[in-house]
Design a protein around this nucleic acid. Structure first.
Length: 836
RNA sequence: GCCCGGGUGGCGGAAUGGCAGACGCGGUGGACUCAAAAUCCAUUGUCCGAAAGGGCGUGCGGGUUCGAAUCCCGCCCCGGGCACCA
């Protein structure tokens, strides 16, 4: 599509101007009130794709708008430049990941700039920069010293495709890797962890005050998974310590201590340490068999089977019994894989009457059911699966079959049961979390090395701060073997112990790249301080991020880790006291879809933004993304999309023609006496300011654009009919100011031609309330709810006057046909409804 | 199964108790032009009607209200998240 002005030339000119003049560079001593806008820093995968365009359009609009509103806006940019794609490319082509990554960064930076997005590039961060690696490692050492980083042996997630371990957060619900899609397997390995669970409660409660999408907060709450209940001991029958044998007991966790009287058996996880002690000679084979099967089965296999039938294959009797402390009666102990070692105590008291899984298991093994909550009438006939008989009842009701709990409601009974357990010294109230500590070791090359050495004498020894950063040598074998590539370089591997000088080996794993992104927003506030990751006082000035923008895919991973890091960095003294949350407001934009799928490189359905930049230009493409629909909604890229983008270009051409004349001068207008339509245009101008300003505040850019289009449609005939000069000037200048954050190049160029100065340094327009007030309002007159007339009235028309005007209208008199109104509802100045 | 969103013209969407379909795309007709492009003007939910005008219409069924796309109850469909977490 041919445009009305030299789009490419104009856009390049202003991109250069903003960079050369440092228009959007700010410092902490700026007297204007601070405002921090941040779009999640990207993994550099080459030129920007449409998703980036959408993302950075919103961010850039906010930066420019806030600046015009008088803030000192911090708008940094960086690259999340460690990660697997570069390493995989290295494996394939032999090019070093650094060379590969730096080239991708150049491409991305160039294409982001060509969108007209402006940043304070002095603050640029690259995760793979030795300076950034150093501070990453310093933070690791601080966490290590505080006990927040630790090494432990645990069953961990291993992705065969990525040849590395993964955090729980990186394993999808179906047990596959979020990156490669491979089935993740469990391995027992000694690995590095960060103690995120220590902050579980704070991570949960802190969500309440954040202006985040409710959806994201819910996802985090579910992930943290706090549940309150009780732990207590079940003494193994015949092992109470009264005779020769040692006392042996099994600790269980339950959220329903009130149902304890209904416990008819107990279950331990296959990996539970007491399995051997509990298993009697005649059940050794069954139990061993079950444990083998459980170890061999994947999560997916376990979860794909449910219901009584499959549960029958998934348990084994140990031969032992434990005493239910509430009834004093023995119940059998089973091993079953539906109980997970990783949650609670790895053992449960089973109450089939009030738990669905226990019910299914009890059905399969013929175990008794004792109800402790009175189910609704008819439950035992049709409360079960598919309306069949029985089933567990988990709802509210009166306690039964529970001696001293009988007659109570569940909440009270829970509290009583816990009081009793604590008084008897059998157990206590506990809180359990689904959240696990964050596994940060990765057996990969292209990441931040973990800065410790292993000394046969002194064990784990942190590399001294003055020796940081520990940098990966270039000379390593990339081929994935499941061993860390760094271990193939013996010069790197073999070192000396910082404490004793004796021979030692280096840690060869690298950190999860989510570590890099967990504090980059803090580094952005001050990437210059020589002896700290950032100056806490400067961080305090800018933080928290006032508006964070990114994809919903980070709802748990990045956003939870970053919240944890912020709290942990305060606690180890690197971040300022009192700063607890990194992102005050979060916006998650919709994704671009094509043929029903997310538009992405891996799906092979990319539409390159670059082709639009050289034809319709960046402004038209930006305007399209703003206009196409609500920012939070997904965008479907279809056959018609190009036409819509052209339409955006057409609108900008109309604006251009209104603002400039062919010889570069401002269009001349009429002088002389004022006409009534002059005032109409002035009113429309000031109403537009109100409307667009409100829409900006509520992220309703599509309606803001629509309002501007409507205004141009109104202005156009006025100008053609010889509009009054100063009225047209006011209208066009206002329009350009309102468009300046959305289509910055066009606004800047047209403004410069009209006024000679820089529009983006101007203040945001303010409406004159008198002019913005409507002169007349269209009052709708209905008869029985159907519109029969419209009357122009003053905005402050009185109720009586409105009623009188409505009843006096010829159309209404005709519509009434002499009938006597039963009731007249008057809502001045908008509506009168006459009910017959 | 549970928890969130969402369902409005041919299409993207607007309207959060008061004129349904703003704005744009697409379509149709016209002006300008030798012609085309560009630009401009008009028109465009649907049905009845020559017209004036009127009926119907926001996934389906009920309800509240003078008045419901909007609030309530019950369904259907689409999208997303969670799902052996005791």
């Amino acid at each position: 599509m041919a445009r009305a002005y030299e789009v490419v030339e104009v856009e390049k000119k202003w991109q250069r101007r903003w960079a050369d003049e440092g228009t959007y560079e700010v410092d902490a001593d700026d007297p204007r009130p601070p405002w921090y806008v941040l779009t999640m820093y990207p993994y550099p995968s080459g030129p920007a794709h449409m998703g980036h365009v959408r993302n950075y359009t919103f961010g850039d609009l906010l930066v420019r708008h806030r600046t015009m509103l008088g803030h000192a806006v911090l708008s940094p940019f960086g690259f999340d430049s460690f990660g697997l794609p570069a390493e995989n490319a290295a494996i394939k082509t032999g090019t070093h990941p650094r060379i590969f990554t730096d080239a991708r960064i150049l491409e991305l930076k160039e294409s982001i700039t060509s969108l007209g997005a402006v940043y304070d590039w002095r603050r640029e961060i690259r995760s793979h920069d030795p300076e950034y690696i150093k501070w990453n490692q310093v933070i690791f050492q601080k966490l290590l010293a505080a006990g927040l980083a630790y090494r432990a042996n645990a069953p961990v997630n291993w992705c065969p495709g990525c040849q590395t371990v993964l955090a729980n957060e990186q394993v999808l619900a179906d047990g596959t890797c979020e990156r490669s899609g491979d089935l993740v397997v469990k391995r027992d390995l000694e690995q590095w962890f960060f103690g995120i669970t220590r902050y579980a409660d704070e991570l949960l409660s802190g969500l309440d005050d954040l202006e985040w999408p409710e959806r994201v907060k819910t996802m985090q709450r579910n992930w943290i998974g706090r549940s309150e209940g009780a732990e207590y001991d079940l003494v193994v029958e015949g092992r109470d310590g009264s005779d020769a044998g040692e006392r042996l007991s099994l600790r269980v966790f339950t959220t329903r201590p009130d149902t304890s009287f209904g416990m008819t058996y107990a279950v331990v996880a296959p990996e539970h340490p007491l399995v051997d002690a509990l298993t009697t000679a005649d059940h050794l084979d069954d139990v061993a068999d079950l444990r083998l099967r459980a170890a061999a089965s994947t999560e997916v296999e376990r979860m794909s089977e449910s219901g009584a039938a499959s549960l029958a294959k998934r348990g084994a009797f140990t031969g032992s019994s434990v005493i239910n402390p509430f009834t004093g009666l023995p119940v059998p102990v089973y091993v079953a894989d539906y109980v997970l070692m990783g949650y609670g105590t790895g053992a449960i008291m089973a109450v089939p009457a009030e738990d669905n899984r226990d019910w299914d298991f009890a059905q399969a093994y013929g175990l008794p059911v004792v109800r402790t909550v009175q189910p609704p009438v008819g439950w035992d006939e049709h409360g079960g699966p598919d309306g069949g008989p029985g089933g567990a009842y988990t709802g509210a009701g009166e306690k039964i079959n529970s001696e001293w709990l009988n007659g109570l409601d569940i909440t009270t009974a829970k509290a009583r049961a816990i009081e009793w357990l604590e008084a008897e010294g059998i157990g206590e109230r506990t809180v359990n979390y689904r959240l696990r500590d964050w596994l940060v070791s990765r057996q990969r090359f292209w990441g931040c090395p973990i800065p410790v050495v292993y000394c046969p004498e002194h064990g784990i020894v942190p590399v001294p701060t003055e020796e940081l950063p520990v940098l990966a040598p270039d000379d390593v074998e990339f081929q994935p073997t499941g061993e860390s590539p760094l271990s193939t370089n013996l010069e790197f591997l073999n070192t000396t112990c910082p404490l004793c000088g004796g021979p030692a080996t280096r840690e060869t794993d690298t950190m999860d790249t989510f570590v890099d992104s967990s504090w980059y927003f803090l580094r952005f506030t001050d990437p210059w301080t020589p002896d700290l990751p950032f100056d806490p006082e400067i961080a305090r000035h800018w933080m928290p991020v006032d508006q964070y923008i990114g994809g919903i895919e980070h709802a748990i991973l990045h956003l939870l880790y970053a919240r944890f890091f912020t709290k942990a960095l305060v606690d180890v003294g690197l971040a300022p006291e009192g700063m607890r949350e990194p992102f005050a407001r979060l916006f998650t934009q919709g994704m671009i879809r094509m043929d029903g799928k997310k538009m992405s490189k891996s799906k092979g359905n990319l539409v390159a933004p670059s082709s639009y930049l050289t034809t319709v230009g960046a402004d038209a493409l930006r305007l399209f993304h703003l206009f196409v629909g609500p920012p939070a909604d997904d965008v479907d890229w279809t056959d018609q999309t190009d036409s819509v983008i052209d339409g955006c270009g057409r609108f900008l051409d109309r604006v251009w023609r209104l603002a400039t004349s062919p010889d570069g001068e401002r269009p001349q207008g009429r002088t002389g006496p004022a006409m009534p339509e002059d005032l109409d245009i002035r009113r429309a101008t000031h109403r537009l300011i109100d409307r667009v300003s409100r829409d900006y505040e509520r992220w309703s850019y599509n309606t803001a654009v629509a309002a501007c289009m409507e205004f141009v449609n109104l202005l156009h005939p006025y100008v053609r009919g010889g509009g009054r000069r100063e009225v047209v000037d006011e209208a066009v200048d206002t329009l350009l100011l309102l468009l300046a954050p959305m289509t910055p190049h066009l606004a800047a160029e047209a403004w410069e031609r009209r006024h000679g100065d820089h529009i983006h340094l101007r203040g945001w327009p303010v409406a004159d309330p008198e002019l913005a007030a409507e002169a007349t309002v269209t009052m709708v007159v209905q008869v029985n709810g159907k519109v029969r007339d419209r009357i122009e009235v003053a905005p402050d028309v009185s109720e009586e006057e409105a009623r009188h005007l409505a009843l006096a209208s010829p159309q209404i008199i005709e519509a009434l046909a002499g009938a006597e109104p039963r009731r007249v509802i008057v809502r001045p100045p908008k509506l009168v409804n006459i009910v017959l």
